[in-house]
Design a protein around this nucleic acid. Sequence first.
DNA 1: CGCCAGTTTGACCAAGATCAACGCAAGTGG
DNA 2: CCACTTGCGTTGATCTTGGTCAAACTGGCG
Lengths: 229, 229
Amino acid sequence: MFKQFGHGTVDNFGNAEFTVAQSGQLDTLTALERIGTRRSFARHEEIYAEGAAADCWFMVVSGTVRICKLLPDGRRHIAEFCFSGDCFGLDNATERQVSAEAVGAVTVMRYSRRATERLIEEIPSLARQICDITLRDLAHAQSHMLLLSRMTAPERVATFLLELSERRDARRALEVPMSRTDIADYLGLTIETVCRVLSVFKRDGSIAFSDPHRIELCDRGALAEMCEA
Amino acid sequence: MFKQFGHGTVDNFGNAEFTVAQSGQLDTLTALERIGTRRSFARHEEIYAEGAAADCWFMVVSGTVRICKLLPDGRRHIAEFCFSGDCFGLDNATERQVSAEAVGAVTVMRYSRRATERLIEEIPSLARQICDITLRDLAHAQSHMLLLSRMTAPERVATFLLELSERRDARRALEVPMSRTDIADYLGLTIETVCRVLSVFKRDGSIAFSDPHRIELCDRGALAEMCEA
DNA sequence: CGCCAGTTTGACCAAGATCAACGCAAGTGG
DNA sequence: CCACTTGCGTTGATCTTGGTCAAACTGGCG
């Protein structure tokens, strides 16, 4: 899983309390429940903008969120997608460096920075868990930079499909909530290239789909081979 | 600056002790001095490998370090360069996800995870400072992903030159410690493209150089315009 | 002097972008 | 109920950027 509470290893860069927190992660979630407020956003609605005050962070309850970064002329990159249980918007800068938008209808919990700080005094292990989430984000960003700088279009798409299926533990048909444009902006490609590669994979028999938002991974082996070649 | 201690804003995602730590950052450095050991590495020597045990972290004393990520077939991406004062190798996973190598001769301080944990009990603000470094790394990675996915070759090179000059606060001639290959792997280009773009900039008069490792930025305005176009 | 590693330049090529058209399903309004 | 629109997704034709391949250049060093 990804960006979620309670998935740290015992070997974390942590003090002794951490293992306690591990078993007590439900407490953490319960405590967060107390300080959070539920918010809903419509499809394509902005959760926060680049440059906005970074005085809170979020956890996805349902739906999908995209974290975007824009160039002045409108070129866009999606740094990541956040699904149910994922956290986003942790930031130590005053202003947001990225924006967050709802891919479809989304419900999130919003936690203010101030309340989180108070809660950390109560549950010190929370600070560590938040730090872990950031470290996992960073590791993901590093892998993704390798993809963006050195992988071919088919490798990128295959990687995306496998990453998505792993994060949403899809057994058969993979739910793809985002548009082809979003996928393209995540993978550093154009929408046409994403379509074409998917069509090739379909012809090969590695994947199958009729509904563009429901892709069946028929041959994971073939896809995995593409990525690591 | 970048990845260094003592550059957080007052508005950090922090508790009350943080502002105290701000004024007391020298204490932190002194304390780190106690638990760290000095290490030197020769040009191109590996500081740690992908997959190695992540039981320590480092601060650059002198020289330049590159953080690399490799594909099985040898394709390489450099996630970042670390200069004097920068920290690297902070990681919560058991194994390294990336490798670190000396660009030239390098001296670093090595801090074991265990000793750092003990020091955090003594100086709680250290945990926050470490977390801040990670958040700054993440913000940099997000900007860099935008560069890798959506910028043209000239935009990438111009961005690189300006970023480098800002981090090393170069007034006239910019010291470029890394090879053209390293620059290419950092920018997601080939060495030939990097050379060609630099030659074009030179012809334009935006930059000047005879020694490839000493580039003079003659027209920062022109370079800045390239990036934000 | 000749070699070596790194840099630069040129000629050519190809992956993926751009431009354009078409398909298709879900609205919308007459 | 059926034209018409709208928003995506898909496919094809063509073009361009940056990659590949190859050769020349440069400075350091045994």
